[in-house]
């Protein structure tokens, strides 16, 4: 199946104090896309646009082949949505919710649901009100996963979870990837998790996409180059340097297009070349773009 699961082109959404602008995003089947951005950058807004819960002011959105938001009823048949601040209906048990979802989705896999309930250490008799945050996330994830949706949209699924719960949750939604027809779009602050499980990563800041690339590419391209320049020497003009910090003789260069060629240009004063983890790449990337936009 060649059709993308999510296609957004030039999407704009204006609010009083915030505008999401020129947003383009693609998600192919079989892929995990990590969506990273500071608070208020527009991650939740983007995910809600994908679900059809908000309508864009401009641009096109297609999810599972349906134009959004008009096609949301059909699209949501095949989308599992879990959000860190989503709650079950009060005054009803988990078991009731399972029956409720099962009656709406014929694809409900009761066997898998039973496995998940055991794995997540939940009980059907538990009342929605008595669930902790971690249990709530696991419960809503269970309700989404047992339907075996082709697309999983997760909004901060692990924020606020203890390390054990985080591991359980991630393992479970990674399981979706056994099938190369299913995909995941998830937004998270947790750059460690994003770095580990994403195939592609999109950075968003202040309503704009800052960068989008496959993960290995990001990790390959970004480096910190530590240079020690004796007094009287200067560095030649160098391409693709997005950051520079001077500390006397010691200079730290940040590049987003590392190559041996670049290293050669820097010359013999290189002390050390450091890889950057996703968090460092993200911060450097955002800072660089804010500077470029004069912010």
């Amino acid at each position: 199946m060649n059709d993308k699961h999510i296609e957004m082109r030039g999407v704009r959404k204006t609010y009083k104090f915030f505008t999401l602008d020129d947003l383009s995003l693609d998600l192919a089947p079989g892929e995990v896309m990590g969506f990273v951005g500071p608070n208020g950058a527009g991650k939740s807004t983007t995910l809600r646009l994908a679900l059809g819960l908000i309508a864009p002011d401009a641009g096109e959105i297609r999810v599972m082949g349906h134009a959004m938001p008009d096609g949301q009823a059909a699209a949501k048949r095949d989308i599992g949505y879990v959000s860190g601040d989503m709650r079950l209906l009060p005054h009803a048990t988990l078991g009731w919710h399972m029956d409720f979802v099962k009656s709406i989705y014929p694809e409900w896999d009761g066997g898998y649901a039973a496995t998940l309930i055991k794995r997540f250490n939940l009980r059907p008799e538990q009342n929605a009100r008595s669930l902790s945050l971690g249990e709530h996330v696991k419960a809503t994830l269970l309700l989404a996963l047992a339907r075996r949706p082709r697309l999983l949209i997760l909004d901060e699924p692990t924020t606020g979870l203890d390390p054990v719960a985080r591991h359980e949750v991630i393992s479970e939604f990674m399981d979706v990837l056994r099938d190369d027809n299913r995909s995941i779009l998830f937004s998270s602050h947790n750059t460690v998790d994003v770095e580990r499980i994403s195939d592609r990563i999109t950075f968003i800041d202040r309503g704009r996409i800052v960068d989008c690339s496959n993960k290995e590419d990001f990790l390959d391209r970004w480096r910190r180059i530590h240079v020690q320049l004796p007094a009287g020497t200067t560095l030649p003009s160098l391409p693709n340097i997005v950051g520079r910090v001077n500390d006397g003789q010691f200079i730290t260069l940040t590049t987003n297009q590392f190559s041996e060629g670049l290293l050669a240009l820097v010359g013999s004063h290189v002390r050390d070349v450091q890889r950057m983890n996703l968090e460092e790449i993200f911060v450097a990337n955002v800072m660089h773009h804010r500077e470029a936009r004069g912010q």
Binding site: G52, D70, Q72, K76, Y81, L89, P90, Y105, T140
Partner: peptide, 13 residues
């Protein structure tokens, strides 16, 4: 109660 998101995630307009 934040359960609106759960209901809106169902396949309806």
């Amino acid at each position: 109660e934040q359960s609106l998101q759960f209901v809106l995630s169902l396949p309806l307009s």
